[in-house]
Design a protein around this nucleic acid. Structure first.
Lengths: 294, 294
DNA sequence: CATATTTTATACCGTCAGTCCAAAATAAGC
DNA sequence: GCTTATTTTGGACTGACGGTATAAAATATG
């Protein structure tokens, strides 16, 4: 993505957070970003597309952050899962996303609607998968039900905590409370062999491992050259290592994970951080595809 | 409410259901109702107020229907509660209310927002109260948490059932599934003495029993006269009985309940049915205020 | 029949998302 | 340095929206 375009996006994001999506006019964005209408519609075909870019960005960010929490940890650890779901809540709060999601979900723009729908669904599938990690295979038939209910409980509790109290909800307390409830739910469902939602909804998320690797390598190479120009030492090393490791027949996953996480940490705040993020996002997708196929 | 105004409201409702609230323009309503813009803004000060009238109508309708389910039944019966919550789901589905609620909750119109907020809150308090009926006093500290979570589970399950499948969700199955989960939740929370949301949120719903009775009697009298004009025999009898029973020092509640329910049933589809509904809504509020104070 | 209210039709306002376009600024190729 | 593409600009424009204003016509009321 164009550097200038990204800047416009970030300013739009700021406005959407502060004023809300519908209350922010394109004119507001133009003034904030000091660009003309023509330029805006050159970058984005519509205000909705601009929002979609922001949402995608946020989505990728939380996918990475969640994935990083698992590096070197036991995937059965329930606290890790709680932490991962907390990330989602934090991102939602930071970007004030809930109102946006709701507004969008019932908007007339079908593309936008489908975008958010697909995101929600992938979110649920991911949680369901993690629930199987944590609760074992016997939880599988109930994982989707449980993820949906858990998300529903969290959302509503958050909602009414906000409505009833002036101060922001303590989302950590909220998530842990819900997790204790989820425990009871899960064992009860397993005991009663009680299933609601059809299994086929859970059909594993397709991971197109095919061109993923090539894309990753290409982008890494481009990124490395830019990093070299900017003389950001550490990051060049990271990029070089990842490139060489990806050449190996069986890349060592744990190394990819470790370096990937540090790469992003070190680039944080620096120039090109956004570009790094984009590449690292691909890296995690690639790592997950390896893990899924082993 | 003016008869013609009510008709416009019903047509607007139809459009909102079919096309969604935001997608329906005032112009659409004018054409559908074959009225001029001036008339519309004579009835309602804004499109939002029109929506509020519709929501209030739906709310009253489901309050009545839910309350009728309890007539002569044991308030501890869990199936009754399930049926009552089902009523809510049915009304929501019939009027396609969920999208409207969500859209409104984050709208910029504060009045509209507060209206929906208050409705949601009263809904939760009502469920919490019913949970205490069913699970006993020991459930009291957890009743609000539980009602929030239950609603959250139902809503999300419904949401994703709809998203994942082409056909409409089987809400009866859904509610009963959720009720089995709620059982586990409740006993777990009681055992663990685990509470999240502050107690003060639950502060009992104020029932202004004061002028309620006079208002009820007035409206009943007006209604009776209209019914006599239209020569709707049965209903006149009902109205007369209610009026006389309300004169008594201690009106017999079970009789009020029985007659109230039949009154509405018999008027269903007939002329003035809407007027009957309005009065019967007051009747149930009055009955509940008696029950609460005994 | 006269007075009061409601309804109508239409013109109008400001705001919005989005289109179009000619001119100016910037970048790229030779 | 000069020329050719591309991007950016700013403003005019469209059509839809919610909502206002008003004078005339229809309807109800006494």
């Amino acid at each position: 993505m164009n550097e200038r375009k990204r800047q416009v996006m970030l300013l739009a994001k700021k406005l959407f957070i502060d004023k809300g999506f519908t209350a922010t006019s394109v004119q507001d964005i133009l003034e904030e970003a000091k660009i003309s209408k023509g330029t805006f519609y050159n970058y984005f075909t519509s205000k909705n597309e601009c929002l979609m870019a922001i949402l995608e960005d946020a989505h990728n960010e939380s996918v990475i952050r969640r994935r990083e929490l698992l590096v070197g940890r036991d995937k059965k650890d329930k606290d890790i899962l709680a932490g991962q779901i907390l990330v989602r809540m934090q991102v939602n709060r930071e970007l004030n996303l809930l109102p946006i999601y709701e507004a969008v979900f019932y908007s007339t723009d079908e593309e936008l609607r489908n975008f958010v729908k697909a995101y929600h669904l992938s979110e649920l599938k991911w949680i369901a998968g993690r629930l199987v990690d944590v609760y074992g295979e016997e939880a599988k038939p109930h994982a989707f039900d449980c993820s949906v209910m858990t998300l529903g409980m969290i959302q509503q509790l958050n909602h009414f905590w906000k409505a009833g109290s002036s101060k922001d909800p303590d989302i950590e307390k909220l998530v842990h409370f819900t997790f204790r409830r989820m425990d009871a739910l899960m064992s009860d469902m397993i005991k009663q062999k009680d299933v609601l939602l059809e299994q086929h909804l859970i059909s594993s998320l397709e991971i197109p491992a095919g061109d993923l690797k090539e894309k990753l390598q290409e982008d890494l190479l481009v990124l490395k050259k830019k990093l070299e120009q900017e003389q950001i030492g550490n990051c060049v090393d990271y990029a070089n290592f990842l490139l060489s490791e990806l050449q190996a027949e069986n890349p060592r996953v744990s190394l990819l994970e470790a370096v990937g996480r540090s790469f992003r940490e070190d680039s944080n705040g620096k120039m090109l951080a956004d570009r790094v993020n984009e590449v690292i996002f691909l890296l995690w997708k690639y790592i997950d595809s390896i893990k899924a196929n082993s």
